[in-house]
């Protein structure tokens, strides 16, 4: 256990910077997502000449936006949950409970990374139906988000205490 605090500092720094970069990236993908759909309406309704790409591109952006933003949720602890038990238990026990929960989150993140990677590989040769972009480009969002989630889990697990305020990590912006 002695190595935990040692690991904490570097892991937390990486987690913070990954969080900041991901936050910036999802802002960009989200704006692009809105723009893509608006352009789609404009071309169909105003110009009467529909574009083939907005519907597939918007979904590609959607996958990345959702999964990357979800990875921020592990750092900031914003995924909805019932904190009844944590609030009831005394300090040490609630700290242990929080660590167990993080462990569970970590297992799922690892599954996203591992199986997600394999699935992206499995779909490697294939392309999308309408505009033929390579499908791994979309499917890679699962393992990438999984990797970031895992990082944030580790950064939080190595904290000395999870009970104190702010233990859920500073918001990225």
């Amino acid at each position: 256990m002695i190595f935990m605090p040692l690991l904490h500092k570097p892991l937390d720094t990486i987690s913070l910077w990954v969080g900041r970069i991901v936050a910036a990236v999802v802002c960009v993908t989200a704006v692009a997502l809105v723009a893509t759909l608006l352009i789609g309406v404009f071309f169909r309704y105003v110009l009467h000449s529909s574009l083939p790409w907005p519907s597939e591109i918007s979904l590609l952006l959607f996958s990345w936006t959702v999964l990357l933003a979800a990875s921020l949720g592990v750092r900031e602890d914003f995924h909805v949950r019932v904190t009844l038990l944590r609030d009831l238990l005394p300090g040490v026990l609630s700290d242990i409970l929080e660590r167990l929960i993080l462990l569970g989150v970590g297992i799922f993140a690892l599954a996203m990374l591992y199986y997600g990677w394999q699935f992206a590989e499995f779909t490697a040769g294939r392309t999308s139906a309408a505009i033929n972009y390579p499908l791994w480009l979309r499917n890679a969002s699962v393992p990438v988000a999984g990797a970031f989630m895992l990082l944030h889990v580790l950064a939080r697990l190595t904290r000395p205490s999870l009970r104190e305020a702010g233990s859920s990590g500073k918001a990225a912006l």
Partner: peptide, 28 residues
């Protein structure tokens, strides 16, 4: 216990796939 609902559903899906011997790539 306080597991976020998304991860609760995800973990149980994963466990279900393991128990059923279903290829977990389907999770992704």
């Amino acid at each position: 216990l306080g597991m976020p609902i998304a991860f609760t559903l995800g973990l149980l899906a994963l466990v279900g796939m393991w128990l059923n011997d279903a290829n977990p790539l389907i999770l992704s």
